[in-house]
Simulated assay, not measured.
Amino acid sequence: MSVTTEKKDASEGGFAEVVKICAQALLIAVVIRTLIFQPFNIPSGSMEDTLLVGDYLFVNKFSYGYSHHSLPFSPPIFKGRLFEGVPKRGDIAVFKVWVPGDGWTDYIKRVIGLPGDRIQMIDGVLHINERAVPKVRLPNDYIDGEGGAARHIPRYEETLDNGVKYEVLDMDRSGFLDNTPVYEVPPGHLFMMGDNRDNSTDSRVQSAVGYVPMENLVGRAELLFFSVERGEAAWAFWKWPWTVRWSRIGTVLE
């Protein structure tokens, strides 16, 4: 064998090894994203101030089991859920909604109603099974500076019957969704709501989101691993000293 042939064989062998390593890395990444954790970024203010535009978080894929929505692009290869786990009231969950023109789209909201629950908003107060959820005004307003001058928005703390506490915003004292009919959650479905109550398209809007089938769950939001200011690009690393919200990194979501 000539020196030229040996060099050619070594080059081809090296290229094949690179291809093999890349394929293995891709396979591992797909398995992790499908079965364990999926990164997710917050595109809207519907969960403020729990989650902010520019937050990046990990979603636990095995918390509720697996459906075809656990796979990239939601291929309809099977129905139902494998290893199904029931969400707890108060969980922050990612789920799929069919949006005309966009296909299956990720939404993130809080689990408020479980199968069989009756949900209603009365004068801005959440009622679950005819009982008002305790709502206490917090001392400091949420300050929203989007679009110009800072706007002070009242913040409240709600406490669910299982002890879960979280903050909600009340942008409009007489918002369109502050008074609703009674929603009776069907079997196998959930009632999801955003913490920014007057700026959230959620299960109260039956024509858009409505009751969410358990099958549409993607996973539970658990850890905030990165965050940049609204309108900033996460990949612009040279701006990080000024644009990264350092205090939010590592926040465990409850």
Rank of each mutant, 00 (worst) to 15 (best):
M1S: 15
T4W: 10
T5A: 15
E6F: 10
K8G: 02
S11E: 11
S11P: 01
G13A: 09
E17V: 13
V18R: 13
V18P: 01
V19F: 15
I21W: 13
C22I: 14
A23K: 14
A23D: 05
Q24D: 07
A25W: 06
L27H: 07
A29P: 06
A29Y: 11
V30Q: 07
V30E: 04
R33W: 07
R33C: 12
T34Y: 08
I36E: 09
F37W: 15
Q38T: 15
N41G: 03
P43H: 09
S44W: 03
G45M: 03
G45H: 03
S46R: 03
S46E: 03
M47W: 02
E48Q: 15
L51F: 14
V53D: 01
G54T: 02
D55P: 05
D55A: 08
Y56T: 01
N60F: 08
N60C: 14
K61V: 04
S63R: 13
S63C: 12
G65Y: 05
Y66T: 05
S67R: 02
S67Q: 06
P72G: 05
S74V: 06
P75L: 10
P75F: 11
I77V: 15
V86M: 14
K88S: 15
G90N: 06
D91E: 12
I92P: 00
V94M: 13
W98M: 11
G101T: 07
D102V: 04
G103P: 07
R110D: 02
V111L: 06
P115V: 04
I119K: 00
I122P: 00
V125F: 06
L126G: 02
H127R: 12
N129R: 11
N129H: 09
V133S: 00
K135A: 07
K135Q: 15
R137M: 07
R137T: 11
R137E: 11
Y142E: 04
I143K: 12
G145I: 08
E146W: 14
E146P: 00
G147L: 07
R151E: 12
I153S: 03
I153A: 05
T159K: 09
D161L: 03
N162C: 10
N162I: 08
K165M: 12
K165R: 14
Y166N: 10
Y166K: 08
V168F: 02
D170P: 00
D170Q: 12
R173M: 11
S174Y: 09
L177D: 08
N179Q: 10
P181Q: 08
E184V: 12
P186D: 10
P186N: 08
G188N: 13
H189K: 12
L190Q: 03
F191H: 01
F191K: 01
M192F: 05
M192I: 05
M192K: 01
M193T: 03
G194Y: 00
G194W: 00
N199M: 09
S200G: 09
S203P: 01
S203V: 03
V205R: 14
Q206E: 12
V212S: 02
L217Q: 02
R220H: 10
F226E: 05
S227Y: 04
E232S: 12
A233T: 04
F237T: 15
W240Y: 14
W240I: 09
W242N: 07
T243H: 04
R245T: 04
S247R: 12
T251P: 01
T251F: 06
E254N: 14
E254G: 11
E254T: 11
